[in-house]
Every structure is written in C-alpha cells, then in structure tokens.
Design a protein around this nucleic acid. Structure first.
Length: 574
RNA sequence: CGGGGCGUAGCGCAGUCUGGUUAGCGCGCAGCGUUCGGGACGCUGAGGUCGGAGGUUCAAAUCCUCUCGCCCCGACCA
C-alpha cells in the first residue's frame, strides 16, 4: 500500500476527547473515527488489525474443534422473554419494533438464538459435543461508553457456544477453550491472567475472565501474592478473621451520643470495628433489604445481588429507611419485621457484638447471632480488599487494575431447559443440553494490545497483528536514486508476499520516521543516498533502538526471516 | 441517573466575564519556489449556519430560556 493513496491521515495533535492512551493513538494513527458515543468506524489500517485478530481467533477456534457460522443481529424479543434474560439485560438491550409492531432486539449476545438453532438440528447424543462460533457485531446500550474502544455500544465479538451431554463434557469443552484463549492472547503478544469472575447477566455458575494488567482497565483484580488465586473484585473472596469465641453476655443498652458511623461507635466504645455489626439498606427489585455485616467489612453488591437473585439493586435512600421505621445510624436487626435480613457469614464467628438499638444515639452491647435475631439468609457478601488474607492459602491479597479481554462461562442447563432444547441419550431418555459460552471482544482486544505495546512515539505492534509488516521509507534528495530503488524494493517485497506500507510521499525524513513510529509497523526499511552508497538499505525494528545495514540483494529474504522470527516468538507457547 | 467539563474551519485552541467594523492564531489542506537522516522554510490561497431553536437588543459567538451532542468521575456494565 502506498501511503499517498491510503485513506486515513496521521495527526500530530491529540484529539481533545481522548484520554486513554490507546484511544489517543488510534485516533492519531487514523485507525478509527468516532461516529457517536461508543460507536466507531474503522479506517483501513484499523480494520486490517481487527481482521488479523479475527484470523488468529478463527484459527484457534477451528483448531479447538469449533465450527464457524453466522447468526442474525436482529432477534425477536420473545426469545429473550422466554429465558427471562430480557430483564437481566434490562436497558442494556437495544430494542425496536418493526412495521407490524413486533418487538425486536439487537443481539447483545446469542445464547437464545444458538440454542434454538441447535434444538432444530441436533437431537441425539451422537451429535454432541458441539462447538459453534461466530465473529459478529454485538449491540449493548451501555450506560457509559468510555476509553475509546475499551467500552463501546457496538462491537465485534467472537462468541462460541458449547453443547455437551453432561457436566464432564462441559468441563472438557471449557478446558479446551481456556487453552485456545491462552494461545490466542499469546499470539497477539498480550500477557493475560486468568481470574475467577462473576457471571452477571449471562448467568451460569462458573466463570473466568482473561485480564490484561493495565491501569486504564475498568476492572479491579484481587490476587494472592503467595499462591495463584486471582479473582475479579466482584467475585473475590477473602479469609475473614476468626474472632475468639466468647461466652454470650446479656444484652445491654448503651448511649452513644453523636456516634453514627461504625468508626465513631467503635471509637466511642473503644472497641475494634470488627466487634460491631454494620447495617446497610438496599432496595432489591423495589423491596427493602436489611444487610448485616461485621463492622470492619464492606458489602459486595454483586454478591448480594446474586444471593438475592434480584435484577435491580441499589442503596436505599434516607427517606426510605426512615419510612421503614428504622433509625439511621443506630439501625438494629433485632425485632425487624417484614424486611428480609441478609447477613454476611462473618457474623457467625465471635460474639457480643455492638449493634444499633433502633433508638437515636443508642446502641446495644452483647448482641449475638442467632440468639438475638434471625437472618433470612447467611452467606458470603463481603468485599475483598488488598491487604485481606487469601481464601486459599492465607497469603496477602493485593489489587491491580485490568482490562477484560475474554470471558468464559459454564452456563449449565438453564437456557436449554427454558427453551426446551433437549437431546436423547443412549437409553432414549431426554436431557437438557449442558452449555458453555466463550466471548472475546475484538475491539477491546485491539485497544488492550495498544495499551500494552506502545511508547511515547506511538504504537509498537506485535508482528502477528500489525496492519503491515514493513514500513518502506525512501529519503528524498536531489539527483538521488533512492526513490527509484525504493519502487523496485516495493515491487519485490510485494511479490514475495510481504505486507508493505510504502511511504512514497515527498516528506522530510522527520515526518516519515515519526509517522512510522506512530503507526507502529514492526520493521522499517530506509533507502537513502547514504545507504545506497553501500548498495544497502537500513532495517530497524520498531521495538529496538539500533538499526542494521543490509545489502539490497536478498533483502526480501532477510525481512521474511525477521518476520517469521517475530511470529514464532509469539507462538512459543502453542 | 447524580456530579464536573466542553461544543468557534479537518485537528488543537483564542475571543464569551465587560454585546459593537470584514470572527482570529497554530497545525493540516491547495498552488509556486527553496530544502531533505528525526515533525524544514518563504510567498499565495481555499476553508466558518460560532452545536441547534427561541428570546432580549439598534446590534448577539458573547446576555437569557429551552434543547441536542461529546468527554471525565461515580452509579451501572459479558
């Protein structure tokens, strides 16, 4: 490709709207263009990268036994209502109606459609396991798109769905996908870690995310410094400090003037926060919920939402709390009627806690569970934090930010049950198919690749996903043959199947070198009067400072060698 | 949805507080000439419903009302 003809120009200045590095570089390199909030067009260079990612993903999906197909973006809303996931997705689902007033949704994912599809094509255990995938645009009306391609409303996703006869089969499919994903991210030059995750609106029981560590990421990862434990903060567990068992004492009212928060109460009574019980109020699908947790621990709202099985969850307002007859700042789980009480399992160790008395500026000492109050449900709803202890090995937990580039789910049978997607086993008995689903957001993957591969000059593409492999750069000087020679080199490299971006502009060297760096093409070949004196050209790797002079004769072979070296380094682990 | 910020040429900005000729600057773009190993220079030129609507005024980019869009933080979110 000749740069003089390339659609999309580089920009010297950083567009004001971009704050994230990948966003800035993508715009400056002329790879994307914003059309609306969270909606982007890809220009030729960006599109080439996206296609390279797609090719790697296809290759690994096929190797893992996947079959590619394509399903519609437009889906009947009815299908979503059948599984109830229209509610789980809520406003995130783009909906529209057709001319006959039929309700449709733009697909945010395809479990329903693929399950229907498989239902009509596979009835026997003989046809399982089955792995089907597509690479297709998804639509999600995100409340807040951000960071350029990090979170968008229309995006390209690879989604694969596995169908098995039983749990063991699902485990095997899941393992295959974990390996395939690892291969994909390795080949894209992207170090990732696998973390335990919540399954959110997709549903299901077990789920993992592939995260790249990056400050610009939206997710917080909790990991153990000692063992391999790592989890999204939404899911992360921590070992809760066990309190000493004490003999339960009789309850006792104590005045706590001016003390409302846990810190104030603990300070006032000169006890550690872990000896208090914290009350937090939520509205879950319109109903008030009373949450009790040890004073030193925060509530994890994702865990709480899962425990409640509700769709909408928010903190209650002060008005709502007062209306429920509760004294804010001194709320008590004792004597609560008509309100669901959810307790974190941290309250089951230790004894004689301080809790509210439901009287202004008054608390109760020696509150004991379950002697003094009942909870509808006692489970883990605690927010793990850096500094807590690891639930697996007791080591210290740390925290970092990450970008979620892949997410895999063990769905189980809830969708196939709802949609009646059954198969017949060897004995002629019907069972629901056991499903898994596996997604990679390509746009985000592209953004993450830049977040992890750049310097102050621009992008540094790994060879495997670079839009072009070689940047051919003749330097102009009067009476020099550099341009003519470069034309010949260009023709030769193209003939050899090397992907060349030919900077045929009569720009000054600085402009060309800076653009080459910004675009991040892995290999730069300079042809100039200086190199021609030695009948050579200069090759410089984008990732390295030093350049080397190589004879023009056989330069294509030399470049091919460097390209395949770069590729093999990325696929070492395969 | 709550908080903050911003909409003036393709990009980055000034001008708005305090209303007053033809709305400026830099980059980029077009033409001509000189240059050519890390964002060269000179001259000439094109390019603007000042986000939109309504209002106040002799007069609005500037003041008022409404509205649309974009970014950031939070809520939220595979």
């Amino acid at each position: 490709m000749r740069i003089s003809k390339l659609f999309g120009k580089t920009q010297r200045e950083v567009p004001a709207e971009a704050e994230t590095t990948s966003h800035q570089l993508l715009l400056r390199a002329g790879m994307i263009h914003q059309v609306a909030a969270g909606v982007y067009a890809y220009l030729p260079l960006g599109w080439r990268v996206l296609n390279k990612l797609a090719a790697i993903i296809r290759n690994e999906m096929d190797r893992a036994g996947g079959q590619e197909l394509i399903m519609p973006v437009l889906q009947p809303l009815e299908l979503w209502q059948e599984t109830g996931r229209d509610k789980a997705f809520g406003k995130g689902l783009f909906t529209l109606s057709d001319r006959r007033e039929r309700q449709l949704a733009l697909g945010p994912t395809h479990e329903e459609v693929v399950t229907e599809l498989v239902k009509y094509n596979v009835q026997s255990y003989r046809d399982l396991p089955l792995l089907l995938y597509q690479i297709q645009n998804k639509f999600r009306d995100e409340p807040r798109p951000r960071g350029g391609l990090i979170r968008v409303r229309e995006f390209l996703m690879k989604d694969l769905y596995s169908f098995d006869t039983d749990e063991a089969g699902l485990d095997a499919s899941y393992q295959k996908m974990l390996q395939a994903y690892k291969n994909i991210f390795d080949r894209c030059g992207l170090p990732t870690i696998l973390v335990e995750a919540d399954s959110g609106a997709i549903g299901g029981k077990e789920s993992h995310e592939f995260m790249t560590i990056a400050e610009s990421g939206e997710d917080e990862i909790i990991y153990c410094e000692k063992c391999k434990y790592a989890a999204n903060v939404e899911k992360a567990e921590c070992a809760k400090e066990k309190l000493e068992a004490e003999e339960p004492l009789p309850r006792e009212e104590v005045a706590t003037p001016g003390a409302g928060t846990i810190e104030e109460v603990a300070d006032f009574l000169k006890i550690p926060p872990s000896h208090t019980l914290k009350a937090v109020f939520y509205i879950a699908d319109g109903k008030m919920v009373f949450v009790v947790i040890r004073g030193d621990i925060g509530v994890n709202e994702v865990k709480l939402q899962n425990a409640l099985g509700c769709v909408e969850l928010r903190l209650a307002t002060e008005d709502e709390i007062i209306k429920a007859g509760i004294v804010a700042g001194a709320a008590s789980p004792i004597g609560i009627k008509g309100i669901k009480v959810i307790a974190d399992n941290s309250i089951t160790s230790g004894a004689n806690f301080v809790a509210g008395a439901n009287k202004p500026e008054t608390h109760l000492k020696n509150v004991n569970y379950p002697r003094d109050f009942k909870a509808t449900l006692v489970t883990d709803i605690a927010q793990a934090r850096a500094g807590d202890r690891c639930p697996k090995c007791g080591g210290k937990l740390a925290s970092t930010r990450g970008i979620e580039v892949g997410h895999v789910f063990k769905l189980g049978t809830f969708i196939s049950q709802k949609l009646g997607a059954l198969f017949i086993d060897q004995n002629g008995a019907s069972h629901p198919r056991v499903m898994g689903c596996y997604g990679i957001g390509l746009d985000r993957l592209l953004a993450a690749a830049i977040e992890l591969n750049h310097d102050d000059k621009g992008i540094i593409w790994p060879v495997s996903i670079a839009p072009y492999q070689v940047y051919l750069c003749p330097l102009y000087k009067e009476n020099s043959k550099a341009e003519d020679v470069a034309e010949k080199v260009y023709a030769e490299l193209e003939a050899e199947g090397i992907e060349v971006l030919f900077d045929d502009r009569r720009e000054s060297p600085g402009v060309k070198f800076n653009d080459a760096d910004l675009l991040g093409i892995p290999l730069r070949v300079t042809v100039s009067p200086r190199t021609l004196e030695k009948n050579s050209a200069e090759i410089k790797k984008r990732s390295e400072k030093e350049a080397q002079l190589v004879p023009l004769e056989g330069i294509a072979i030399k470049l091919k060698e460097l390209i395949s070296q770069g590729l093999s380094r990325l696929s070492n682990s395969v």
